[in-house]
Nucleic acid binder design. Structure first.
Lengths: 317, 317
DNA sequence: ACATATATACTCAAAGTGAGTATTATTTAC
DNA sequence: GTAAATAATACTCACTTTGAGTATATATGT
């Protein structure tokens, strides 16, 4: 393997927390420019593994101790805007998902802040209702995009992707297809990154807030992974305080998945599956009957092979 | 990003096919040495994306046209045996899973051959019965491994991992935990790669056939991914001929997952979910009532958001 | 005391699953 | 040529899970 094959590796992290029903991602914001995920180089001399490299400079840059961290994907596309350090060295970027509890009083790097992830993906939040942007902007624009392909095969394929991604024609909304949706919008020239990377813009539409480099793609991957993983691993609890009410837990799950759940069935599932246990203490709050405080039952990890918050109780109304 | 941060990227592919109830992986076997996955460098000058780089040299090296290919994981551990090209340049390896139909008469590179993947993971094949190696060798060795940690926390943790990974104490076997099991055996010094990487061997046991570099780890990741993905994406059909009997399909699914399924319920599921459709033609065979030939119903991709062979019909007897 | 707001408990029908038995269409042994 | 064997396909049934409620309990505010 001659020296001409060398590249450098950039590590980017989507660091996620949820506070008050808002799922947030830590972004770096140097004045004026687009939001970026915290990122830094992998240093092969000082980092034993990719994971430890990530933890090291995330710690230095954001003062956060990462608990849970998971590799997402390695992107190496030429053409997608990637950081280009010195002359010509290709950068391959490895994306990570990390979860953390958002301590309100923690030391924080000055240029970082928590940002609602739905700013970047407004079409992903179905908690109130099907977002109007879908039928008013996205679907018409994607229909044009499909029509612009004369080859009927390509056009038909684009229409099918649209239907599956955005749940048109009576198809259901699959909250896990976050990346597929973003990629479709990118290909259709409907997000700013596409035009920035030199693709022709199909309309003047620039859906959602854009990010530097390929960071919005990494964030889309992170959301998709978290929405999926939550269902078979108890990762939500990484985002919760030691004790919480079942409603708080449900709101956190809803914030991440972007859909509303049936309260009574959510409770039934949590209890039947042994994911939580009551503490006997109760939350003090303004209105209504006080809710019991629950904690995560760690023992569940020893009992069930794939414990997680299965979202089998979607509200259809 | 100074030049000292450069690394080179190796692409490795677990190329899988299934013939006659045997799941196979394409391995390169240069005389005498261990089996290796086909691998080659990523060339940033000539490859636009990691994927296209992989397809290019796999085509050159194996004469195979990859249909389905999917990135698995990027490994960069120092200490795990990785190819070290020239002096000191760190190699980061990106693993891929690819699926192909095994054409019996295809042109083939001389050093490559199809190899039953259970040679590398004999504990993963539960089709006949719970493999005896588990209770005779693995569990006792892992108990020793746990005991060797004096700190009761570490020991307890190791025992729990053993229970979950290998389904002892009445816990169920989770066929998807292929990587977790391999990693546990690696840490316990029970696979050859561990001692080769300089860890102390706990016994003289060297479970399964070893592979070069970190290739067995990549293969474990590939099997795990395929076993999981199969359940919500119709990827099995990438491994099937255009028409097939339902039993052939079932045997393929069983070969991959390593478990037996209930025949009547398998048929019910395939038909109810619209994954296959009858062709009206029948297979000619030796004994018994002739089976109808089915084909994959591509339309299912347009109808259901996550079509796949859900293995909800495990045989418990 | 009573309206309101939550939390928690219980119900019920529909759908999905696990594990069969029953029937049909072939080949092979005698 | 008929019976046994073999495999495919069809049907059954109890049990579990799910979706969507209604019902009851325990707070607060006026």
């Amino acid at each position: 393997m001659p020296a001409k094959h060398v590249v450098s590796i950039g590590l980017s992290a989507a660091i996620v927390s949820v506070a008050d029903e808002t799922p947030s991602v830590l972004v770096v914001h140097h004045g004026g420019s687009e939001d970026a995920l915290p990122f830094g180089p992998f240093d092969p001399l000082n980092h034993r593994t990719l994971d430890s490299g990530l933890r090291k400079w995330v710690g230095e840059q954001t003062y956060l101790e990462l608990g849970y961290a998971e590799q997402l994907y390695t992107f190496g596309d030429r053409g997608r805007h990637l950081p280009t350090p010195d002359e010509g060295t290709r950068v391959v970027s490895v994306g990570y998902l990390a979860l953390t509890r958002q301590a309100p009083d923690q030391k924080k790097a000055p240029d970082t802040r928590w940002s609602d992830w739905y700013r970047y993906f407004p079409w992903e939040d179905w908690r109130e209702a099907r977002p109007v942007i879908i039928d008013q902007v996205i679907v018409p624009a994607l229909k044009l995009f499909a029509k612009s392909a004369n080859g009927s095969d390509v056009a038909e394929n684009r229409r099918n992707r649209m239907r599956l991604c955005f749940g048109t024609d009576g198809l259901v909304w699959d909250e896990e297809k976050v990346l597929e949706r973003y990629e479709l919008l990118y290909e259709a020239g409907l997000v700013k990154e596409a035009t920035r990377d030199g693709r022709k813009a199909n309309t003047r539409a620039a859906l959602g807030v854009s990010m530097m480099f390929d960071h919005r793609r990494i964030l889309a991957t992170a959301i998709a992974r978290l929405r999926g993983k939550m269902k078979y691993r108890p990762v939500v609890f990484e985002l919760m305080p030691p004790t919480f009410t079942l409603l708080k837990l449900q709101r956190t799950v809803e914030a991440i998945s972007g859909i509303r759940l049936h309260k009574q069935n959510f409770r039934r599932l949590m209890e039947d599956q042994g994911l939580v246990e009551g503490t006997g203490k109760f939350a003090t709050q303004a209105r209504g009957r006080p809710a019991e405080l629950f904690r995560f039952r760690r023992e569940v990890l020893r009992e069930r092979p794939a414990p997680g918050v299965r979202l089998g109780m979607r509200k259809t109304s």
